[in-house]
């Protein structure tokens, strides 16, 4: 018994080292910009770079739009499937898992072929339309997480009784969906939202191939041209990821959401 506990400690310590050493190394490296002493110069350079603010705020807006689209699609669908059309469940679940099967680079390649500027739906013909395509693309990538969170949330509440109570009080379906059901699954929706945010904020493939000025392509550009600033950016990105996951934990205390698979 003692030996197995020792083995468990060794496993956990090695795991912790694997997790922490790269972070420590990145922090250390990001502080080395000034020769011979530690400083926050790399952070100062990054934070004063107008392209950082532009791309970061661009990605935040895209992430928020993605979350709105994701909620508008996932909540009504999961609700209707649970309440009225359970026979469609296996099929819908299969579709929501497809973005884990089809790599993002393949999806965006398909967009470029299908929605080029001379096609029937020319999404890539103007910057605004491409922004829209990017949002829809991200909503697709985040669909497995958003849908599963919402569905898990709906499982925990009595959808049928809530709907019947609202109906008997004369509520319209819009009221039922967005003023009765949505507030009841807000914890699940929020955890789906933060997961979506974490996926979108640093995403590279879609933004780069659709040629949008997002944070991911900016990161890549800095990585190719600078020495210490990339580490500072990695730490900032890590803090954003950490904040998203931390917020999921905080709001989801008791309600357990699951995540599986990223990009």
């Amino acid at each position: 018994m003692k030996t197995s506990r020792l083995g468990a400690w060794i496993a956990v310590i090695i795991g912790a080292l694997y997790f922490l050493v790269p972070l420590a190394a990145t922090v250390e490296f990001s502080l080395k910009k000034r020769r011979g002493e530690y400083s926050f110069d790399a952070y100062a350079v990054v934070l004063q770079d107008p392209r950082f603010l532009q791309s970061f705020s661009y990605s935040i807006s895209v992430a928020i739009a993605t979350i709105v689209v994701g909620v508008l699609i996932a909540v009504p669908t999961a609700y209707v499937i649970r309440l009225r059309l359970p026979q469609l469940r296996p099929f819908v679940e299969f579709v929501t898992l497809l973005p884990l099967v089809i790599p993002a680079i393949v999806i965006v390649f398909g967009y470029l072929r299908l929605y080029n500027s001379s096609s029937w739906l020319p999404f890539t013909s103007s910057a605004r339309a491409t922004d829209l395509l990017l949002v829809f693309g991200y909503a697709t990538l985040a669909l497995p997480y958003m849908y599963r969170s919402v569905d898990t949330g709906l499982r925990a509440i009595d959808v049928k009784t809530l709907t019947e109570a609202a109906e008997s009080l004369g509520a319209s379906w819009w009221t039922i969906l967005f003023r009765v059901i949505l507030p009841n699954v807000r914890v699940a929706v929020l955890s789906g939202a933060f997961l979506t945010f974490a996926i979108v904020i640093g995403e590279f493939t879609l933004a780069s191939l659709l040629n949008r000025p997002a944070f991911g392509p900016y990161l890549q550009n800095i990585g190719a041209n600078r020495a210490y600033e990339p580490s500072a950016l990695a730490i900032i990105a890590f803090i954003v990821t950490w904040a998203c996951m931390g917020l999921i934990q905080v709001i989801g205390r008791g309600a357990r959401g699951s995540s599986a698979g990223t990009r």
Partner: peptide, 11 residues
């Protein structure tokens, strides 16, 4: 598991 992509390469 969500810390991937470009920042991971930097790290």
């Amino acid at each position: 598991s969500n810390f991937a992509g470009i920042p991971l390469a930097f790290a």
